[in-house]
Structure formats: C-alpha cells, structure tokens
Nucleic acid binder design. Structure first.
Lengths: 124, 124, 124, 124
DNA sequence: GTGGTCTAGACCACT
DNA sequence: GTGGTCTAGACCACT
C-alpha cells in the first residue's frame, strides 16, 4: 500500500499508482476533490513538490483536472481511464515476472504455483 | 533478455538478473567462466564499469568467484542459489502486480485471467 | 470577450484588458458606470476579489473613478487612454510573436502570411 | 531573445520556446547534444531544476532524447516538429494581439500598420 | 562529467 | 485556504 522511498520506482510514480488505484476502486467521487497537495504530502510524509509532480502527471493522463485556487478534481472518465491503466500496470508486472522466470528456465507450473500462492497470501 | 536503460531498475541489477537467470537455466557450466567484463559490456551495449559492478555483486551473492588474471567463474552451488534467487524475483514481481491490482480493487478473476493470458503469450 | 483561467496572464489583467478594450470601443459611455464588481464577477465566472483588483488597477491607470456608494465611472479621458493602451498591448503581442518567429528563423514572408491569415479568419 | 524572470510566461516555458526556436533554426545539429542542464542553467542564470523541467517537456514533445549519463540529444524529426511548433506559437501570439485589437475596435488598417512597423523594427 | 529525484522553503495568483 | 513556479542544495546511477 504505502509509499516506500527506498524502492527503485520514484516516489512520484508510486503516488500516481496509488491515486490511480484509488480512483479505479472508486474511493474518490467523480467530480470530487483529491486531497490537497499539502495534505497528501503530510499524510505520506513526502515533500509537497513530489505530490505536485504526481498530480500534474495525473492531469496529463486525464484523470484529474485542477481548478485554480480550488483544488484538484476527479474527471468524468477518470474511473474508466484509471481502471485501464491499473490493468495495464498489473499486466506489465506479471510480464516482467514471467520473463524473469523464463530466463531462469523455471517450469510454467512453478510460476503458476508461485502466482497462486502469492494471490492467496494477499487475498483480502 | 534485454537490458533496458529506461527502466527504473538500475542497469547493473538488470545484468545481475540476466546472469543469475542464465546460471539457473544452466547456460553456464559450473566452474566454467563467465563472459569477460569487456565482452559482456560490448554485447549488452553498456559501460564496462556497469558490468563490473554487477559482477562484484554476483560475487558477493556467492554465484561467481574471481580468479585473478584468469577470469570469473561459476561457483559450485551457483545453480541452486540462482534458482532460489530467480524464484524470489519472480515472486516479488507477481506480488507487486497483485498489490497494484488490489489497490485498484480488480477482482481476483481479472488478475488470474491477465496472468494466464500473459503466460500463454510468453510461452516458449 | 473571454477570460481564460489557464492562460499565463493573470485573470485580473485579462479583466483589465477586457474593460480597457470595451472603453476604447466606446461600449461604455464617458461618465457612465461600469458594471458592479458583483455583476461582472458573476458574468465572468470569477471571484469578486479578482474583479476588484482589476478595477483598482483601472483606477490607477486613470480610466475609471470610484464614487463612494455610487459605483465606478468612466473618466473623461478614458477613451483616449484606453485606445493607446490597447494599441500598446497589440504591439506587445505582435512583437512577442515576431520574436518567436525570428528565433526560429522563420522567413518574414511566412510571418506575414500567418498574420494576414489570422487577420482574415478573425475578421468581423 | 533572453530569459526574463519577470514575464508572466514561466521561465521553463521560455526555455522551451528558446530551444525549440534554436532547433527550428538548425542551430543544433540533428543527433547532436543540447547544452548540459548545468551548463545551460549557468548560462541563463537559472536553477538547474528549471532547465531540467524544460528539457523533460522537450522530450515529451519528441524534440530531444536523453541518453543516461551522456546528455540530451536532438531527435531526427526535431527540426520539423520544432518548425511546426514555432509557427503555431507565432500564430497564437498574433491571434491574441488581433483579438485585443478587435476588442478595442481598432481598424484592421491600424493593426496592419502596427504589425508591419514592428516587423520592420525587429528585422535582422 | 551526465541526467533523475527529492527535500526545504520561498513567493505568487486566486478562492 | 488552493495550486504553480522557482531556488538552493543533496544524493543516486551511469559514462
């Protein structure tokens, strides 16, 4: 869940993924506001500039829209876009894992069992 | 295969994964030599310093051993270590993907179908 | 017409330009009243504070005069001042465009043809 | 020419326009390097972060490509893209000027004469 | 040397 | 209060 500054993925991308997932999960109302830059920065214990960079990218992706002096708001087609982006990210991760496994000549059955084991572990 | 300088994973770690996978797949003979730093750097289109850093790390992991003036050689227990490490890397990737999916509240069935679809696509 | 909150020019300056142009075009009678702050704010979908700032600036420029409790009125020499200011603004914009074109080494003929094309398009 | 920190246009956009114009004018060789972030920052008396933001946007526009550890390089189709973007910027400025003039009910002849006067003044 | 990310903190326009 | 821009300065991976 949280943000991990020691990962290779830059913090601002982790924030993008985090917000994108939350939008896909409909944790934010369409047309509703995102947490303010400062508020989210405090919550994530991260610099406001870093949050802002994430928010700007989310705007570029069409997920949010900023209204000057008011805040940043979820767009109408955000849920759809976010869901698609999230699925794509999942696919990318799975592909990367499968490629690593194939490189090591792991049998498909091994990969499947790893997958289902992790899936079970992380199940809600 | 394939080193991608635009990924977030540092190149030297990508090289480690690459060699580690090859050892696990027994593409290198136990006690046999790895490609020279210079040769691998040319092959991967990468700076020799970067390859060297990867080799140093592989030595630290116990997968290879440097014999001065002779080259770098695969250790006796390298295959086992490499296999374990590769499985661990695969697990990490799958976990990351599943976490992203759960964050977006994707149904498990969706994740399973993405996984099997990718697995089929990448099948040998 | 048209205030665009996404332009770089601050909204209050866009309002100044807008009123200044209207005075130059004699859409407001000399000695006649400007729309009230509140009314203009509603019309332009803008915060009243922002309109007020524009009106203060217009007063500083000598185009309008506040009469307490009565409203804001066009001064005697406003038309002249406004016309000069508008011409100056036009010149500034043209200069900026020409500078950009010169920076890109666009031939003068290209700039002229762009200019006349736009002029024709925007013709009344 | 230069960068003006007091303009309304953000510095990083001024840098974008500046580099874009220079590419259009073929002041940089295709496939050749741009000045390094630090070098340009020194030259323009601006913070490196600001230059970097401009360079990132230029990359997003497809005008340049960064090679890690090496620098930032002009892409093959950069001249074409830059020329088109520069013309578009010129058109935008002229449009803005003409709109201001029309708002003030300036005769077309006045606008033309202002335009040609400025063009003559700024002529090489 | 190169670019990429991040923090800390300032000032501005707008609500 | 809100977001947008900028500076100063740090650390990292890569050449």
């Amino acid at each position: 869940m949280g943000i991990d500054p020691n990962k290779h993925v830059p913090i601002y991308e982790q924030i993008i993924d985090h917000i994108c997932g939350s939008i896909a999960a409909e944790l934010f109302a369409v047309d509703g506001p995102l947490p303010s830059i400062r508020a989210l920065a405090l919550e994530l214990v991260v610099n406001p500039n870093t949050v802002q960079r994430a928010y700007q990218e989310l705007e570029r992706l069409g997920l949010v829209r900023t209204r000057k002096g008011l805040g940043i708001f979820v767009t109408d087609d955000a849920v759809d876009l976010a869901r698609r982006r999230s699925e794509e990210s999942v696919r990318t991760m799975f592909s990367a894992g499968i490629d690593l496994g194939r490189q090591a000549d792991l049998p498909q059955e091994t990969m499947k069992s790893i997958f289902h084991q992790v899936l079970a572990t992380r199940a809600g």
